[in-house]
Amino acid sequence: GKMTGIVKWFNADKGFGFITPDDGSKDVFVHFSAIQNDGYKSLDEGQKVSFTIESGAKGPAAGNVTSL
């Protein structure tokens, strides 16, 4: 299901970062391709987001990332 969290950091040049889930679980990798907006796909440190957990090739990653 949907989770919420805070963006820990995001490197716009490399197109990835990490989200710290509100439930205290392990930080989740986020790739820019998972960001659900029409414009420039980037996130800001400290931004609140909702997301799902998808299993990627390198382990769990955030999917369906939407800013709240």
Rank of each mutant, 00 (worst) to 15 (best):
G1Q: 08
G1M: 15
K2N: 12
K2F: 11
K2Y: 09
K2P: 14
K2E: 07
K2V: 15
M3C: 05
G5C: 01
V7A: 02
V7C: 04
V7F: 02
V7L: 03
K8Q: 04
K8T: 11
K8N: 06
K8V: 06
F10K: 02
F10V: 04
F10Y: 12
N11G: 05
N11W: 15
N11E: 05
N11T: 05
N11R: 15
A12G: 12
A12Y: 09
A12M: 13
A12L: 13
D13S: 13
D13N: 11
D13L: 14
K14R: 11
K14I: 11
G15I: 02
G15Y: 03
G15L: 03
F16K: 02
F16C: 04
F16I: 15
G17W: 01
G17C: 01
F18N: 02
F18T: 03
I19P: 00
T20N: 07
T20H: 10
P21V: 06
P21H: 03
P21I: 06
P21Y: 08
P21N: 05
P21W: 04
D22L: 09
D22G: 07
D23G: 11
D23M: 09
D23F: 10
G24D: 06
G24L: 07
S25N: 09
S25A: 13
K26S: 13
K26L: 10
K26M: 13
D27L: 09
D27Q: 08
V28T: 03
V28P: 00
V28R: 02
F29T: 02
F29G: 02
V30P: 00
V30Q: 00
H31N: 04
H31K: 03
H31Q: 04
H31W: 04
F32L: 07
S33H: 09
S33I: 05
S33E: 05
A34V: 15
A34R: 06
I35A: 03
I35Q: 03
Q36R: 11
N37E: 15
N37A: 14
N37P: 07
D38W: 06
D38L: 11
D38S: 15
D38Y: 15
D38T: 12
D38N: 11
Y40S: 08
Y40A: 11
K41E: 07
K41G: 09
K41H: 10
K41M: 08
S42E: 09
S42T: 15
S42W: 15
S42Y: 14
L43H: 02
L43M: 06
E45F: 15
E45I: 12
G46W: 05
G46N: 07
Q47I: 12
Q47R: 07
Q47N: 07
V49D: 00
V49L: 03
V49Q: 00
V49F: 01
S50L: 08
S50Q: 11
F51V: 01
F51Y: 11
T52G: 04
I53G: 03
I53D: 02
I53Q: 05
I53F: 08
E54Q: 12
S55D: 08
G56T: 14
G56P: 05
A57G: 12
A57D: 14
K58P: 10
K58W: 14
G59L: 11
G59T: 05
P60C: 04
P60F: 11
P60D: 07
G63T: 08
G63Q: 10
G63S: 15
G63P: 02
N64G: 09
N64T: 09
N64V: 07
V65R: 00
V65G: 01
T66P: 01
T66K: 09
T66R: 13
T66V: 13
S67L: 14
S67K: 10
S67F: 15
L68W: 07
